[in-house]
């Protein structure tokens, strides 16, 4: 854990889960592990991990191999890439979210298949517990 009084400038890598409650300026890369930005965490960095949960403040790009969760106390400005992304009510987010990370960005627009109305009937949406 990076405690609330600790400040780090640079790149953090590792093979274990990490909780950041302090200040980080740089990059954090934890492949195959979980990263949590705690409520007092203030991060200006690009983040990459298996799962990332933001309870504090992040400015930077966030890449989650499995999922990214911005909790009700979280504040994020940046670009998110993950197959599953959850914003809790109260979370603050500005930027882009890519939930199709396997598809390379192209300028060609996706065209509707037909004008017929699809079945958009509501279904149970998985919400991450806070």
């Amino acid at each position: 854990m990076i405690g609330p009084t600790i400040q780090v400038k640079g790149t953090i890598t590792g093979n274990e889960n990490l909780v950041i409650e302090g200040k980080v300026d740089g990059a954090v890369d934890l492949p195959q592990h979980d990263l949590t930005i705690g409520e007092s965490g203030q991060v200006v960095a690009n983040l990459s991990a298996k799962t990332i949960k933001v309870d504090g403040q992040v400015t930077g790009d966030i890449t989650g191999a499995e999922k990214v969760i911005i909790s009700k106390s979280g504040k994020v400005q940046g670009n998110l890439v993950a197959p599953r992304v959850t914003l809790e009510d109260g979370a603050k987010f500005k930027g882009s979210i890519d939930m199709d990370p396997g598809d390379k960005q192209s300028a060609a627009p996706s065209l509707p298949k037909s004008s017929a109305k699809p079945d958009l009937s509501p279904r149970e949406v998985k919400q991450e517990a806070s």
Binding site: R84, I97, M99, D100, D103, V125
Partner: peptide, 12 residues
Amino acid sequence: AFLSRFRAKIVF
């Protein structure tokens, strides 16, 4: 949550 049913790219 609504857009999660698609393979969505979203800009807020």
